[in-house]
């Protein structure tokens, strides 16, 4: 049993290492989800996820704006689930309802303080670098 656990830890380390190396590539790929009409917020969000870990991102969405959130992990789209909550933790959106869509647009009526939770779809990927990009329309 001990040997099995040791091996499990070994491979966990190895998979994290591989995921780390892929971070840059994923970022480049994810940028393609921010279409031309979206202006980047100038920031690059990422977190290294293993198994069922959840990365949490805080952001303000300003009223009167349309935002695009792009979320990626791995070189195939749909490996990452992202959920958007408001400041009272009401679930506003989850990409899992839409085949883990790699991007989604949000039309914001009034300013909201939101939280994004990002988590790997364990059916597709066990570890990896989660990249989030946010853009807004002029």
């Amino acid at each position: 049993m001990k040997n099995f656990l040791t091996l499990a830890a070994f491979f966990a380390v190895l998979s994290i290492q591989t995921a780390t190396a892929q971070c840059d590539e994923i970022a480049d790929q994810c940028e393609m989800n921010l279409a031309k009409e979206y202006i980047s917020d100038g920031q690059f969000y990422r977190a290294l996820l293993y198994n069922d870990q959840v990365a949490e991102f805080e952001l303000s969405l300003f009223g009167g704006n349309t935002y695009r959130i792009a979320a990626c992990s791995g070189m195939d789209s749909g490996n990452l689930v992202f959920r958007l909550y408001d400041q009272e933790h009401n679930l506003l959106f989850t990409s899992s309802d839409f085949s883990n869509a790699p991007y989604w647009d949000f039309v914001v009526e009034n300013t909201m303080q939101c939280t994004i939770e990002a988590q790997l779809d364990l059916n597709k990927q066990q570890s990896g670098c989660a990249v989030l990009l946010i853009g807004f329309k002029k």
């Binding site: 001990k2 966990a12 977190a47 807004f136």
Partner: peptide
Amino acid sequence: VDEAQNAVTSSLVKIDSEIFSLPSPIQTAI
């Protein structure tokens, strides 16, 4: 190894809960 096993079996572990987005100056300009 025991801790590694705990990591595998834990549920909804939140990592680095301090990733914050700041409003872009370009939004203000627009």
